[in-house]
Amino acid sequence: METTGATRIQARCVGDTAIIYASDYLNKLTGERIERECKNQLEAGRHAVVINFRDTELINSIGVSILMGVIDAAEQSEARLIFCDVNTQSASLFEMLGLTKHVRIAMDEDEALSWIEPQESRRGVASGS
């Protein structure tokens, strides 16, 4: 598991897939860190990004806006984007706002990784984990 120095966002890689861990409250500050980390991972050539919301209790409007920026970035890079471990409240928020039309929500990391083609997720040795 890596914690990127200045941003304090936890992330790890499984093959070509980056798994990024959102913090407890997704607002402007933490949202921008996630967005930056996602963009860094996409620029580094990852073909899939999983955002794990296991610690996230609340997502505010700026958080939603930033997640849409992440969706755009993933689409532009033709990368897969999956959210996982989303609590009920956040899941229904994503559903209500239509984010689920652009991103799939998995129960947990294992399910998210299983949705990604084996050659994408299981290629090579996990780095940083």
Binding site: N60, S61, V64, I66, M68, L97, G98
Partner: peptide, 29 residues
């Protein structure tokens, strides 16, 4: 949240940027 952002008079452009993102996120635009 918007009330808090607008109270940020120190950096006008940052205030406007945050308020705008808040508006986008309110109905997911």
């Amino acid at each position: 949240d918007l009330g808090q952002e607008i109270a940020n008079t120190a950096d006008f452009e940052e205030m406007l940027r945050s308020s705008f993102h808040l508006l986008l996120g309110s109905v997911a635009i």
